[in-house]
Design a protein around this nucleic acid. Structure first.
Lengths: 327, 327
DNA sequence: ATGAAAGCGCTAACAT
DNA sequence: ATGTTAGCGCTTTCAT
């Protein structure tokens, strides 16, 4: 039989008779044959590869996100190309985008949460479908994942208020991150809704790292007036606070209630187990994949869904409790 | 100028005059050209892709390992293909190896620490270079990374002995894992060297997970005779123990000294910070990459280094202290 | 329903 | 030193 017939069989073309197809599959089995994806990509122009760009791999949130994304992609017959190298340096960014271009990725999930501008140009020139988090662009090739922090942050503030807290601090993320700003705004709104006032000195910019959390707590505790609870812009910050509180000879939640955001796998195993606002990696990864797949498998110009929503929710564990009676 | 000249220029062939080369590079700049890796791979038969297979992505050790491996590989112009899906199911394993075969990987790092047999056959049939951890095979295409646990485990036992502990337990990993068995053997040897006896009931098989650590501690504490210190086969187990001790209303290190193994990034931020035996992901990733690169870039039959050594060392933090005075 | 043939973008052998 | 050409393994017309 001819090479073309084999190709048609593998690609499930209807134009091949059943018995010939059966023979082909048999031969494939016997010869242990498998197609060469490079040849395939070369002729078809498609690669079945998706790219994913994240920042700051030292935050477990991102490995967890990548794993989820990978799992979904592989299940759908895609391969993934990861770029987690330091996005800060422009030359590294350029080379990581180039790697993706060279391998002819069919779409890229840019999940850097706030520093996507530089990647955008490079990729959009080549007309590659993209999906961004919390960053809306007027381009049919670019989808957006909207993160609804309000549900989770509202619940967190209300949870503290119900416990009797009114002196609530917020350890924010870096200014450059859109997501960090959005989280802070949501906190302020939630406080207002709960009839609570935000004390300016209790809003401290941190950097979403463990060390940042340690430093943030130190600044907070050096203040003349101290809060009885703190909400952190992410779990790493919260875990840093847990650590700093312990080192200061104080106790969570007796001396300070702490709430994180992300619900990384470890949050369940901190001491005490961390009350946190869950931002599901699985949901996020799924939204990113769906967006990319929709774009990749529909020709340009097709009208498709371009906004995806991922929500948040509060997970109550043991790092929050009633405030100590005022002295 | 001709296409061949461009190809030669890009590949730095010496047979191209300087001024023509300059013009080529200029044109490349202007046209924003970049080579198609699929076409390249097709003709050259090489892909510049390396595979890495790990198990149990929920243990942060593995994401950390993958990141390191990726970083090194990318720095050397390689791309990586990760397989972290459940290695337990044979069908998943087959399909993950197939993915790698289809993309024509030039080598695969099998870092499953003990369940590599099934992958071996599939890959060695296709004559793909491999590197395994702690698993020696007589095949010139297969390198081995020897993990020297003795240094770290000896130091750990001695550290406890010097603090005054003699009642030391060991929470081992699953029997199927070669590495878990090796670790246990090293513990037994180190105890003997320190003149201490290993109490059989105090050696408990766990499964290298947080939950396993919690369960392991429960079993240990239910015993009529209790140890004053415990060494765990990995950090996840140790962190589980930390958690279980806390839940039992006891304290580390006052009631029990705990030592882990791996030194994952989080070990520094547990409460209390975990004393642990460091097994460097960077060293491991580097050894794996070096082994693969050596094999990929030397023709078959070349005599090359096929054994790589990665060592361990003790990192003392705050989860170990003198045992409480015997009651 | 099947086969023959062209061509995807590149490299390498061969020619000049 | 440069250009011409064949062919890597596949998909996709176009014939039959």
């Amino acid at each position: 039989m001819s090479i073309a017939t084999v190709s048609r069989t593998i690609n499930a073309s209807p134009a091949v008779s059943e018995k010939l197809a059966k023979r082909v599959w048999q031969a494939i089995e016997e010869l242990n044959y498998f197609p060469n994806t490079h040849a395939r990509s070369l002729v078809s122009g498609r690669s079945r590869i998706l790219g994913i760009i994240v920042e700051n791999i030292t935050n477990p949130f991102f490995p967890e996100l990548i794993s989820s994304f990978e799992e979904i992609a592989v299940a759908h017959g895609y391969e993934i190309l990861v770029s987690s190298t330091n996005i800060n340096s422009p030359s590294q960014l350029t080379s990581c985008v180039r790697r993706m271009l060279e391998r002819k990725v069919e779409g890229v999930a840019v999940l850097t949460f706030g520093s996507e501008e530089s990647v955008l140009d490079q990729l959009s020139v080549h007309n590659i479908p993209m999906v961004l988090a919390e960053f809306h662009v007027e381009d049919p090739k670019i989808s957006t994942i909207l993160l609804d922090y309000s549900a989770g942050i509202h619940a967190a503030v209300n949870h503290l208020a119900e416990l009797g807290h009114s002196r609530i601090a917020f350890l924010a993320g870096p200014k450059e991150l859109h997501s960090a700003t959005t989280r802070l705004e949501n906190f302020e709104q939630s406080m207002a809704d709960a009839g609570l006032t935000v004390e300016k000195p209790w809003v401290i910019r941190c950097d979403h790292t463990l060390k940042g959390g340690v430093a943030g707590f130190a600044k907070l505790w050096a203040l003349p007036e101290r809060p009885t609870a703190v909400i952190c812009s992410n779990d790493m910050t919260a875990i840093g606070v847990l650590r700093a509180v312990y080192m200061a000879g104080l106790r969570v939640p007796e001396d300070l209630s702490v709430i994180g955001l992300d619900d990384i796998d470890f949050a369940e195993f901190t001491l005490p187990p961390l009350t946190t606002i869950r931002l599901s990696r699985v949901d996020l990864a799924k939204a990113a994949f769906d967006a990319l797949q929709l774009q990749a498998e529909n020709g340009a110009g097709a009208v498709i869904q371009r906004e995806f929503l991922v929500s948040t929710s509060l997970v109550v564990r043991n790092s929050t409790a009633k405030p100590a009676a005022r002295e």
